[in-house]
Computed example of a mutant assay.
Amino acid sequence: MDRIGVVDTMFARVDMGSIAERRLAGMEGFGARFKVVRRTVPGFKDLAVAARQLIERENCEVVIACGMPGGAELDQVCAHEAAQGIMLAQVLTGKHILEVFVHAQEEPDPARLTELCRHRVGSHALNAYWLLYAPEELRKRAGQGIRQGGPDAGPLPGA
């Protein structure tokens, strides 16, 4: 049975890991095709090692790494460093780790920020499922300007 990893943080102001778990639980084949393995770490700089451990120790085929950087400039620098670590973990393991960051300054209204989290995390959970079981769904959407968490940009004219 395949395993999909979900790692989230205590620092986030929304329970992003539970959003991913609920979205995956609604997928066809849940329980028969795959199991969700979840870990929670203190902050987003801890995501890369936890994701790598889920792949190497728990045999996860793909990992969804969720974090919520704060709005300060220092938080943005740290988010960039965390993203670099996640990319390195992908290269070292040869497995996809979908980085799902929702930056606090993306939406000043708390209710809308929560909704942004739900949409972005849920969309990436679907992407993780498609990577494993329906890669043709991703291919159908190539070049369409599809965004996770905001309005789609759409394709360029004549593209």
Rank of each mutant, 00 (worst) to 15 (best):
F11C: 11
E107T: 00
A82N: 02
I64D: 00
V36I: 05
M68C: 08
E81A: 15
A142C: 14
A50L: 03
S18D: 13
L74D: 13
M10L: 14
V37L: 06
V62K: 02
V63A: 04
A159C: 11
K95A: 12
L132Q: 04
Y133F: 08
G67L: 04
K45Y: 14
R22W: 10
A82L: 03
P108V: 00
N59H: 10
V100R: 01
I55T: 11
L74S: 08
A20R: 04
V49K: 12
K45N: 10
A65I: 03
Q90R: 14
H103L: 05
H124F: 06
P135Y: 06
I86D: 04
A125D: 02
H103Q: 03
I86W: 03
A12Y: 03
C66M: 01
A125R: 01
R147D: 00
E58H: 12
M68E: 09
D15L: 10
H103M: 08
F30K: 07
P151Y: 11
G5N: 04
M16P: 07
A128S: 01
E21I: 13
G29V: 07
A32Y: 13
K35P: 08
H119M: 08
G85Q: 07
I4C: 06
P151C: 11
H96E: 12
L47A: 01
R3V: 01
P108R: 01
D152W: 05
V62E: 08
A111H: 10
D75F: 05
L138H: 09
A48C: 09
A51N: 05
A20Q: 09
G26N: 07
H124D: 09
E106D: 15
I97A: 00
L54S: 06
M1S: 15
E137R: 07
V7I: 12
I4T: 02
L132T: 01
L92C: 08
R33G: 08
R52P: 10
R57L: 11
R39K: 12
R3N: 13
V62M: 06
H96K: 13
A134V: 04
L113M: 05
D2S: 14
Q84S: 11
V7S: 07
R139N: 05
Q144F: 05
G122Q: 02
L131P: 09
Q76E: 12
G143N: 15
Q144Y: 04
H103D: 09
M1G: 04
V36G: 03
P42G: 09
F44L: 12
